[in-house]
Amino acid sequence: MSHKLLREEVVASRDLLPVFPRVISEIFATLDDPESNLGVLEKLVARDPVLVARVLHLANVAASRSRRDDSIFNLYTAIALIGLAQLREEVIKSKLTGFVHGLLPAGVLPGLWQHGAATGVCAEQLALHLGLPAVPALVAGLLHDIGQVWLCRFQPAAFLSAWEEAKTRSTTIEAAERERFGVDHATIGAWLADSWGLPMQVCVAIRYHHCPDTALSVPLVPLLHVANVLSNALDLGGDYARVSALSQQCCDALGLRWDDSADLLFARIEAANRASAHFYDSPPAA
């Protein structure tokens, strides 16, 4: 074993990392209150030219569908048109993309973030397909491999060696990580998510996304497991899409059947992935 990692060490590293975006916690705190954080989000968007451009674009697409003739250039009109749910989604994607780009060492495993982003899209679309809350699914999907990002930053040589071993030998990345660090990226990710104050269901889903059958009572657990598998099965992100396991119990818990009714879900996932591609580009190379 290279270096047995302890929770205290991982959590203490927060001081060496970019600050986790506070707006994510604010969104979770007000999910059940549809109007309460609109003002906060409006101010946040107004300070971010990329988000302003994105919101205006989405509003003009929506306006063209409702046969409005005039283009929309006013941010507040645009926000009123796209609605709070889509505004939340755009803020989450933008802020977590920036946060993870700040964590990842330049040029190291750029596919890592692309896979996280694609899993976020899959989780959100799967939640919408199943009538489950989309925001926790999106956040859990985007951050499900944050433990690997942490390993990339703080244990790069040992992590890359684990990565190569998992690619070239018949072992999983989780097993290779546990051999070196005593824990795997799912556990590290859950420690970090908890330290950032994310909801317990998100932390548990990250913790069990590779071994979900022991935590099926939390609906986000099977959802994140299946979303992670789908992002690989549909080859949406990253440079090493591989499917090696899919929990039957998770599929049963979610009521998923892989018959032709799944095609619309696949199509929606691919469409959402294309629409989000501008957020999910790799961090700049070294």
Binding site: A245, A262, F266
Partner: peptide, 29 residues
């Protein structure tokens, strides 16, 4: 392409086999 993605999967497991067949059918359309 789909077989490469599922190369490490045990397609004797019903859930994996069903997903493999569905993805193959979807991609083949």
């Amino acid at each position: 392409s789909v077989e490469a993605i599922f190369a490490g999967a045990d397609l004797g497991q019903p859930a994996l086999a069903a997903l493999f067949e569905r993805v193959l059918a979807y991609r083949s359309q």
